[in-house]
Simulated scan of single mutants.
Amino acid sequence: MAVISRGQITIVDLSDGKSINLYLGSNVALTQIYNKENSTYSPNWSASPFLVITPEVYVTGTPTNQISRLKRPPTWKINGSANLATYGATAATAAPYALTIKNNMGSYAQMHVECEVTYVDPDTTAETKAKTSISYAKTENAGQLVCAIAYAPNGTVFKNGAAAKLTAHCDMWRGSTIDSTNVSYKWYKLGSGVWTEITSANAGGVTGYTTNEITIPESAVLNFESFKCEIKDTDPSSGTYNTTVSDIISFADMSDPYQVEITTPQGTTLTSGLTQTTLTTQVWQNGALLSDTFFTGATCRWRKFDKNGVLDTTWGSAGVKTGRSITVTRSEVSVAATFTVEIEK
């Protein structure tokens, strides 16, 4: 059986409403190169199409971007400042509320962009705040120095089946120029904290893993996955011969055909009056709650992580409990604990 979806819940979390996911999309790579030789930037944010950061809002049980449900335009900060003009930035006041930046990074080496939104539930009119951020880094390149920059030409989010495949592209930059002569490429995928090289034996539908661009099917991204590209200079006449550089890029599946929800009728806070609570797995597909028959032939595997995020290998059987529902007692929670569930079918 294969894992088809994942979910998690933290006991002592006081909110048990809909899950709001705020995502920031960038039209350029997250690294800007400054070439000291000719004082140029790549990519150059001061020329069209500039740097454009676009927020997207996804809500449990709804497969489409809910950016139109915001109470007001997002609140933006750059490097902790609300004075966007300092960075040549302007924020749109109508959906999709993009932030456009027309200044290059100049004297600062990093740019941290924060976005906060208030989502209004169309059914209950309840308001929920969500906040996220995206960071950019400036790399100074003196000609012979090389670096790798990865980006996603068509974005990093699978949205509501709009694209069955997305691509990740990575280049070796020498100064402000791409060097694609006498270089080799290797791609890796992160799993259980370990980078594994993608080969024909484990590609899972990913293609192009020996080139500067891989094609990733939606089936290869379970909720959130990270990929790394390593580029090696193989030119014996080069001053950086045998040098290897790398960059990492991540993809999210916001339109996963199966979305896991963990319900807790008794609540997520254990007290002297509430000594146990029951966690039950529910699965949504295309905005509809699936019936109990979905779980026929499926296996739900639960794991527990302590307050520090460490897996409890003594819990259950070798750190795993199975079943659509499990009961958590006070003795199993020290301050806080996070429970994850994987559904195999």
Rank of each mutant, 00 (worst) to 15 (best):
D247W: 06
T264G: 11
D253F: 00
G25I: 09
S133K: 13
T132W: 01
G323F: 04
L270A: 13
G106R: 11
T40W: 09
A137K: 08
A336P: 07
P153L: 07
D256M: 09
G17Y: 06
A318R: 13
T128L: 07
N35L: 06
T54L: 11
I216T: 05
S133W: 07
W173S: 01
N182D: 11
D312M: 03
F227G: 02
C147S: 09
Y119A: 04
T322G: 07
A98L: 00
Y108Q: 15
P73H: 05
S219Q: 12
T293K: 14
F295C: 03
K131F: 08
E230N: 03
P63V: 13
Y108M: 05
T31G: 01
A150N: 00
F295L: 10
Y119W: 14
T54H: 09
G239C: 08
T100S: 09
I4E: 09
S192V: 06
E140I: 09
P153S: 09
Q259R: 06
S246F: 08
Y185H: 15
S5M: 11
M1I: 14
G205Q: 01
E127H: 07
I343H: 01
G319P: 08
E230H: 03
V183G: 13
N35C: 09
G267K: 05
Y136N: 09
S238K: 06
M254D: 11
T64F: 14
A137Y: 13
S317T: 15
K129E: 10
A252D: 10
V206I: 15
N308I: 04
T264A: 15
S226I: 05
T275Y: 08
A126N: 13
P257L: 05
E230G: 00
Y23S: 14
A337T: 01
N38D: 15
A201T: 14
Y41V: 01
L190V: 01
G205S: 02
A29T: 03
M111V: 03
I101P: 02
Q144P: 14
I53A: 12
M111Y: 00
N27V: 02
V59T: 09
S26P: 08
E261P: 06
G143D: 05
A318K: 14
N35V: 03
S135N: 08
